[in-house]
Structures are given as structure tokens and as C-alpha cells.
Design a protein around this nucleic acid. Structure first.
Lengths: 149, 149
DNA sequence: ATTTAATCCTACCTAAGTGGTAGGATTTAC
DNA sequence: GTAAATCCTACCACTTAGGTAGGATTAAAT
């Protein structure tokens, strides 16, 4: 599994905020209840989003979180990267300038690089707005049966 | 990480066999030495490939393995599926007919389904022959700088 | 027939990552 | 000052990853 619950829940939280924090802040307790997820676990996840500059937060009573930008200005790629660290499908492709020692002669490396590119390309092309508004055509593309009807 | 060493080594073994087992069988010891991988570990991996019908094996002295078909008749998708079990990027998408209970109302599901489709589409479009022969254009596609020159 | 070299099979093990839980400190609105 | 919220630091059970170990079985060569 490439994307763990951390990344999945992070996206769920972002979508929830996009839908529900239109004016003012929304508390984590509200999100957890709406999405039926553990509030304590979400706490650690939303903390990453907050520190990564994705959110604005307000402490104290009536506090909570809201998006720092417009939903159309977040790519899914950057949201997932923040919580997952990397989205590379294998750990042998270059990360932070460090490449595998066998890279020069490895027959399989171009495959993994290509796969990585395809994934990044897909996730960078979809915004939080697309997910929030249910843009099936963009998300499912040619695989979508309902998109024609 | 979506693809573990199991899948990566499985592909490495397949490529090695495609290159070296052109006539007759090749022993696991030879493969392990050539690829600089633990023979004992490879043993468990090649066993999956063998049971999955990807290989033909011969026991006893001068035995070993060879491909069951022509390299052009294996997709990377089926090789990886055999060792990894699944290539789904998240565990909330439908597997073996079992779908998430929240599927009907989940905003993020189409995204994961789309991502899954993109991955499967890519890996199904590339054959063992492509990897073996270093078909960079097919593997790297638009991301390949060297492909033009 | 015996040796040798190979696959096959079962069990085990350590380290890291996943998916949380627990408890309290701090901040701010009312 | 109190209630309700974020923030922060530990901890923990379980699963998976990435192997290792040892022997049983098979088949070719001598």
C-alpha cells in the first residue's frame, strides 16, 4: 500500500474543511464525528497539515481549523506528500538527490521512474476542488462508465 | 512504498532469465550471484513465480529455471501482482468484490479509483521485453529527456 | 550405485512501520 | 475563572518487510 491511513485521512480532513469551514473555524471534534474517525488520531495528522502551511488554526474556545487557501489551489500531490513523506512506488528511485548505486546499469530503474512519473503526474493534476466537487471525469477519466451518461 | 523488494526482485529475476536463459535452464545460484542478491531470499520469491506459472523448472543437477513464454507475452502488471498480491495504492478500494461500506457517499473514493486505474494501465502496457531491451520511450514516455536525442 | 548439484519446503527471526491511545499543558472566548 | 479548544510528548500492540536456517527431495553425471 502506497498511501496509508495518514494520507487518506489527511485528504478526508481537507475535503471536510473545504465543505464545512466556509466561514470561520471548524473544530477537530466536529470533523472526527462527521467523518467517523478517531479524534485523537486525526489530531496527529492535522498537526502535520497545519505545520506544513496547509491550514490556519485558532486555539482556545470556539477555535479550530480552516483552509489557508482556496480549494482549487491545493493539488492532491502536495497534500499527500506532506503526510506520507514520499509517494514513490519503490524505495530504489532517487530521493533527495541520493540515487541507487546500481542505477547506471539497472534495467528495471526506468520502469520504476516511469511509474513514479505517472503517479505524480496524475496526483498533481487534480485539485482539492476537484475532489470536493466530485469531478468524476477528471478523477476517473477514461475509466469512468458514468461520465458519458 | 507500494512495491516491496519481493516485487522488485521478482522483476529482476524475470529480466535476468529473459537475458540469460535463452537455451536451457539457469540456476538460482547464478542469478543471485549476477544480481548480487541473497539466494535464500530469492528462493522464496522465485517459488511464487514458479507456482504462478511464469516459469518452468527442472530439479536436480544441472537444473534451474527458464521462462515459460516469450518475454513479450508477460506484462509487468501480472508479474508484480503475483508476488505483491495487490498493487492497489490504498486499501479502501474494492478488492475481490468487497467494497468499503462508505463507498456510496465517499468523496475521495473516485480519486483512489482513478489512481489505481492509472497505475494498472501503465503497468499493463509494458512487457518484460520492453524492460529487458531497455525501451526507454515506452517506460519513461514524456518524462524521458534522452528519448529525443 | 553413489555423489553432487540443484530445487523444494517449513519454520523462524529481527527491525521497522502502521494505526492508533493516553494524559496533560497551553491558549482564548465567554 | 471556567469551558472548550489546540498543542505536545509518550507509549503501545500488531502487522509487514526482509530476510536466515536447515533439511528433504530430485535428477544428472560419474
Amino acid at each position: 500500500m502506497m498511501v496509508s491511513t495518514k494520507g487518506r485521512y489527511a485528504l478526508t480532513v481537507m475535503v471536510d474543511l473545504a465543505k464545512n469551514a466556509v466561514d470561520g473555524y471548524v473544530s477537530l471534534a466536529d470533523i472526527a464525528e462527521r467523518e467517523n474517525l478517531s479524534m485523537k488520531y486525526l489530531e496527529s495528522i492535522i498537526s502535520m497539515l497545519n505545520k506544513g502551511g496547509m491550514l490556519e488554526s485558532l486555539r482556545g474556545k470556539n477555535g479550530g481549523y480552516k483552509l489557508a487557501r482556496d480549494p482549487s489551489e491545493y493539488t492532491i500531490n502536495e497534500i499527500l506528500l506532506l503526510t506520507e513523506g514520499t509517494l514513490a512506488p519503490v524505495n530504489c528511485i532517487m530521493q533527495e538527490g541520493v540515487e541507487c548505486e546500481k542505477a547506471a546499469t539497472c534495467s528495471t530503474l526506468p520502469l520504476w521512474a516511469g511509474l513514479d512519473g505517472v503517479i505524480e503526474n496524475y496526483l498533481s493534476g487534480i485539485t482539492l476542488e476537484d475532489v470536493m466537487s466530485g469531478n468524476r471525469k477528471k478523477m476517473l477519466g477514461e475509466y469512468c462508465q458514468k461520465c458519458d451518461s
